[in-house]
């Protein structure tokens, strides 16, 4: 156990928890208000362990969507983890199977963001896998605790507080800073339009159609007019 690297990882993650904790609370509240039990909501945070996709899972589940729609939406949202996995892989080649399983499970947007810096600057000289473990575990714990707190709040806060509205608000806070150029803005607009006008599509497939439409629009525009 390399405590220095571990605690460097913990400290690097702390500022990011400001965005994670409210999201975990919101997810906990949403789970309960969508009719999931406390156990289901809390355990989803460790079984699925991916914020936005958990929210989509619960919303689609509550709307009675087909299982393949839920599964493919969650998979689509989490496809980005393949890229993270590819980026960290070269630094983790020498690790044992057990280590790779643990670090793989803990790989998230936030832990990737803080770890990749450390891996690329100190990957050769330091036991950076302890850094990844420290940052990953910190995020994991914060996500579990905030989910539990949200579940408790969700069972006590009255419905007229409109806490379900916290979901679109949280997503606005995540998406708006990402809209930096034409392709990203067009991607968001196309997706919004399909989401609104596709709502009568069967089995709630509007979410997949809207997502794919936005992705295709954004990626094609970028291809014609590459980002600088």
């Amino acid at each position: 156990m390399n405590q220095k690297e571990f605690f460097l990882g913990v400290t690097a993650m702390l500022p990011l928890l400001l965005g994670v904790v409210p999201f975990g609370l919101v997810f906990g509240v949403l789970g309960i208000s969508s009719g999931l039990t406390e156990t289901e909501t809390i355990l989803m945070s460790s079984i699925v362990f991916a914020g936005a996709s958990q929210v989509v899972f619960v919303q689609l589940w509550a709307a009675g969507s087909a299982y393949f729609v839920i599964g493919s939406s969650v998979a689509l949202i989490n496809l980005r983890h393949v890229l993270y996995s590819a980026s960290v892989a070269e630094y983790l080649k020498k690790l044992s199977f057990k280590w790779r399983i643990i670090l793989g499970y803990l790989l998230t947007d936030e832990s990737f963001a803080v770890s990749i810096k450390r891996l690329s600057t100190h990957g050769e000289s330091r036991p950076v896998h302890f850094f990844m473990l420290g940052s990953g575990l910190t995020l994991w714990l914060a996500w579990q605790i905030s989910t539990i707190a949200g579940v408790i709040a969700g069972s006590t806060i009255p419905e007229n507080w409109e806490l379900a509205f916290a979901i679109p608000l949280t997503f606005i806070a995540i998406v708006v800073p990402l809209l930096k150029n034409t392709p990203t803005i067009i991607c968001a607009l196309i997706s919004c339009l399909i989401a609104i006008f596709g709502q009568s599509l069967p089995w709630n497939t509007w979410i997949i159609v809207a997502a794919l439409g936005g992705i295709l629009a954004g990626a094609s525009i970028e291809k014609w007019k590459p980002r600088k």
Binding site: A52, V55, V56, Q59, S73, L76, I77, L79, R80, V82, L83, F165, I167, P168, F171, I172, I174, V175, L178, L179, P183, T184, C187, A188, L189, I190, S191, C192, L193, I194, A195, I196, F197, Q199, S200, W206, I207, A210, A211, L212, G213, G214, I215, G218, A219, E222, K223
Partner: peptide, 24 residues
């Protein structure tokens, strides 16, 4: 692959935002 995946979060989250504000 990288190009397509970079649009996934924006697209999915925008769809959810829109559907929770406006219904048709």
């Amino acid at each position: 692959f990288h190009r397509y995946v970079s649009y996934v979060p924006i697209s999915v989250l925008s769809a959810i935002i829109a559907s929770s504000l406006v219904t048709h």
